[in-house]
Design a protein around this nucleic acid. Structure first.
Lengths: 156, 156
DNA sequence: TCTTGACCTCGACTATAGCTGAGGTTCTAG
DNA sequence: CTAGAACCTCAGCTATAGTCGAGGTCAAGA
C-alpha cells in the first residue's frame, strides 16, 4: 500500500512538500520542476522532485526570485540525480548571496541608527540621503533615469 | 529665479528626489504623499515632500512594502511639519524591523552553511527542511494550508 | 461497472510597484 | 500673445508569484 518507490502524483507532492497543487503546476510551467505524464495526461514525479521543491522554498526564504532559482537549478546535471556535491555548490553560491544581502541590510540599519541622532534625513548630512541627493542637487537636466540606475547599482 | 521658498511642481520633485513623475502620481494616488492643486489642476508640493519621498525610498531599500510605509507615515502629525523627534520614532521602529530581518537572514545563512556539510536537505536531518517536513511526513490529510501558514509564521 | 475523488487545461483574478502612451490642458519665456 | 515644455487623466501594460473556478477527464475502490 505504501510503496516508497512509487512515482508521486501532484497531490502526493503537494501534501509532502507543503505547496499547493496550483503552485506545482506553476513551477512546472516555469520550468523549475519536471515530471512525466501518464497515458491519461496526468503528472507523475520522481522522488527527486521533493528535494527540488524544498530547495525552491528555502531559496525563496532567502529572497531569491524564481528565475534565479531556475537558472541555479539549471546548473545541476540533468541526466543524473544530483549528488551531495552538486547541491553543496548551489548552497554555497546562495550562502554568499545571502551574506551580501545581510551586509547591505546591516549597513542600512547602522545608518538608520546613526540617523536617529542626525536629525533624520537632513539634506546633505544624512548618509541615507546620499549620494543620490548630491546628484539631484547639482542642477537640472534629464538625470532621473541616470540617478535611478545609479541608485539601483549602488544599493542592490 | 531660484527661489527656494517656492512650491515645487511634480517635475521639480521628480528631478530632486530621483523618482519619476509617474511614480509621484502613483504615491499620491496611494496616499503616501500629499499636495495641493493650482486653479489649473496642476500639483504643487511643499518642501516637506522631498523628505517624505526620501523616507519612502530608504524604507523600500529596507524591504518595507508601501502599505506599511504608508501606515508608518500616517503616524506622523498631519497638521504640522514633522519634527526631528517624529522622524526619529519612525526610524527607530524601522530599525527594529530591519534587525529582525537581518536576524532571520543570518539564521538562514548559518543553516545554509551547516547544510554544506550535512548532505544538503536530506530528509529529517537538515534544519532547512524542518520543521515543515516533520509535519508533512506525519500522514495524509488537508494540511497544506496549515503547513504553509506554519512555515510562514515560523520563518517570517 | 460505477461512483467519487483526484486530475486536466485555460482564463481570469489577486497583490505589489510601478511604466507608457494617447489625447487634451496649462504655464511660462520670448 | 503664442509656441513649446510641462502638466493632466485614464486605460492598459510589465513583472513576480501565485490562487480560483469552470468545464471536462481519469483512476481506483466497492
Amino acid at each position: 500500500m505504501l510503496d516508497v518507490t512509487r512515482e508521486l502524483t501532484v497531490g502526493d507532492v503537494a501534501r509532502r512538500s507543503g505547496v499547493s497543487v496550483s503552485t506545482l503546476h506553476f513551477y512546472e510551467e516555469k520550468g523549475l520542476i519536471y515530471g512525466r505524464r501518464t497515458s491519461g495526461n496526468q503528472r507523475r514525479y520522481g522522488r527527486d522532485v521533493l528535494r527540488f521543491v524544498a530547495v525552491i522554498k528555502v531559496a525563496q526564504r532567502a529572497g531569491i526570485p524564481l528565475k534565479d532559482i531556475k537558472s541555479a537549478l539549471a546548473q545541476l546535471p540533468n541526466s543524473r540525480t544530483p549528488t551531495k556535491e552538486d547541491w553543496a555548490r548551489l548552497t554555497r553560491s546562495w550562502s554568499d548571496m545571502l551574506q551580501a544581502r545581510i551586509d547591505s541590510l546591516t549597513q542600512l540599519r547602522d545608518q538608520f541608527e546613526s540617523c536617529i541622532g542626525c536629525g533624520c534625513l537632513s539634506l546633505a548630512v544624512c548618509p541615507l540621503r546620499n549620494p543620490d541627493d548630491a546628484l539631484a542637487q547639482s542642477g537640472p537636466g534629464p538625470r532621473v533615469l541616470i540617478d535611478t540606475n545609479e541608485a539601483e547599482r549602488v544599493l542592490s
